[in-house]
Design a protein around this nucleic acid. Structure first.
Lengths: 352, 352
DNA sequence: TGTTAGCACTCGAATGTATCGAGTGCTAAC
DNA sequence: GTTAGCACTCGATACATTCGAGTGCTAACA
């Protein structure tokens, strides 16, 4: 049995109404739609076929049908295909105000937090935004300075203008020229290098150059390395966790609880986001839709995740994701994500 | 009618069993307790009195009694008074493992996040930890350096070793001696001052000293001020939001949703924590218990908040708080909070 | 005077029963 | 191939009944 056009239309109608109502849809409901003029009996026959094909499910005899994961998949794929065609007429206007809202935030972290918030507000789902990951954290600049008698401050700027710093305790203040010497040494040896490039050999050579202060240099160097490593912990910003409770199908102590836990566990969440494919070739915004079991979540298969990729600068990317019930307004979510990544792009471009 | 000792004991028994079971307690349940040997009828009489006094409530006729806010209040006050007496025998052992867990975290933010997590895990309530607030953010040290052709980096260390930084865009690189001059200028004018101390007059004098580079100085100065102001946004770390769903009395779309929103709204949360009294005189850890309406939460009066104050260094304090249902294991919560603040104290003391 | 046994009463929770209706599958006619 | 018709299913709803925990009150008792 193949999926002819009429079946396809019916399936689409079923899914659409289910997305709206959240309740199983019966044959009569579909037959009354102005779209296709068929009696409920005919629809019933087609529905039986669609069920056999695995696109819809009957929760129990004498109930309507609800989409299966496969059904959702088909629906989303079709939607995405359509969107790819009508790419030209980007909607504006509605989201305009956020432009203003977002543009004036200048710290990246607050901006991203804000993005998560706006997205949650617009979609009524839970959202998460990962900070862009600077894969190759090349050191760009190092500055060592004496803050007071016993404390040095190491400031390291790495590729992408990420600033890291670390206080280093010393037993006695360094002489001015010594500080200068260390600064020169650190900069000349480390600038341009990334974490992986820094090896024992390099450290040895550096220590040689430091002469009798080799021990101190090593100590300071350790501090610097600490700082460079530190912000490896990638940030994730979440918002709208309360939205989860708005959907009856997730409103359940274990399901909702598990989701909340996921949203809280930043590290796992980051992995989750990273584990989504990073494919910007097939569609402009790298939008990916994961339905039910396709989701990297093991704890529940009752929700869907949609992610988009934004680009801070060439090659430096982060992700925006929303997580909600399988019965999600995919269309709206995808458009909103597109608009938002669009806005982010323009903001970032104007910045540089 | 006064509250004699017997009434008091009965009230205590009612509250205790209610805390355990979560269901209205009847007279028979109490009469069967080995503590006081009274028939259910007598208990009933006393209960009627207690209700009249406002300490307990009857959800409906022919149901047992549950504590009112006033009842909880009395219970907590008594418990706190008892605890104040037996302050000596600090329990150890059980929490020992966290000592290890917490001690090896060296960044303050991760430590506090960890604290929130441990507390949530131990108590099964939602938790929040505010970063210590450095009331007087005196500038301690300023360093301006040239990162590349068009970017300056301003690093400011304020009291309490909080480091703030900001990239400043310039059109052309500054000469070395010019940079030095700015550094000296900024340091000599601003060190020791706090945000409030910096006024227009000061800026004028500074500009005069800058001579023909006054415009540039002002521009840079703005950047520096930006950075100083920036981290005014105090951080709050939360954990265990999912625990909220574990209590039937809060398990309700609107109530739980509202709480989740509160936990997410860091800024409001911080105010909430700050608004709690800061009184370390009456008990060692500044533990405060807010029950129902006493809570600063306007959205719901179905929960209680317990906060404790920890001290990073003399005068630099933050708060640890837990939020849960009114039917909360106050005893356990208070002990856990005490232990935790204790641990924090020792950790901080060893650090300095 | 305080305590207790006894009893009628209340009312939510639990259980059982009947009904309703949306929806189905199937058959036969168009 | 489509549709009308019909018997059938089964969750949801409504309603009645029962059950029992718990109460308040009264009267007897120490």
């Amino acid at each position: 049995m193949e999926l002819d056009e009429r079946k396809c239309k019916i399936l689409q109608a079923i899914i659409k109404t289910y997305l709206e109502t959240g309740e199983p849809v019966g044959s009569r409901t579909i037959s009354k739609l102005p779209d296709l003029n068929l009696s409920s009996a005919t629809i019933r026959n087609e529905m039986a076929d669609l069920e056999e094909l695995g696109y819809i499910i009957q929760p129990h005899t004498s109930a309507g049908r609800i989409p299966s994961d496969a059904g959702y998949r088909l629906y989303v794929d079709q939607m995405m295909a359509e969107k790819a065609l009508e790419r030209n007429d980007e909607e504006e206007g509605k989201e305009k105000e956020h432009d203003a809202l977002l543009a004036k935030v200048d710290r990246l972290e607050t901006l991203l937090q804000q993005v998560a918030k706006v997205l949650a507000y617009n979609t009524n789902y839970a959202t998460m935004v990962t900070a862009p990951n600077y894969k190759n954290t090349n050191v760009k600049f190092i500055q060592l300075s004496q803050v007071d008698e016993t404390q040095l401050l190491a400031v390291i700027v790495v590729e992408g203008n990420v600033i890291k710093n670390k206080m280093i305790k010393v037993t006695e203040p360094l002489a001015n020229d010594e500080l200068l010497k260390f600064n020169v040494l650190l900069n000349s040896f480390l600038t341009g290098l990334s974490l992986q490039d820094i090896n024992l050999e390099l450290i040895q050579t550096m220590k040689q150059q430091a002469g009798e202060r080799a021990a101190l240099l090593e100590y300071i160097f350790e501090g610097v390395m600490d700082a460079v490593r530190s912000a490896e912990e990638l940030e994730v910003y979440t918002s709208g966790a309360n939205n989860i409770l708005k959907y009856p199908e997730l409103y359940d102590a274990t399901k909702a609880g598990a989701l909340l836990e996921v949203l809280e566990e930043k590290k796992a969440l980051n992995n989750l986001m990273e584990s989504t494919e990073n494919d910007t070739t097939d569609n402009q915004y790298g939008i990916q839709v994961y339905i039910g079991d396709e989701t990297p979540l093991k704890t529940t298969n009752d929700c869907s995740i949609v992610t988009a990729t934004y680009e801070l600068e060439e090659g430096v990317r982060g992700k925006i994701g929303i997580i909600g019930p399988k019965r999600m307004d995919y269309d709206k979510v995808v458009t909103t994500l597109k608009n938002l990544t669009n806005e982010l792009d323009t903001i970032f471009k104007n910045k540089t």
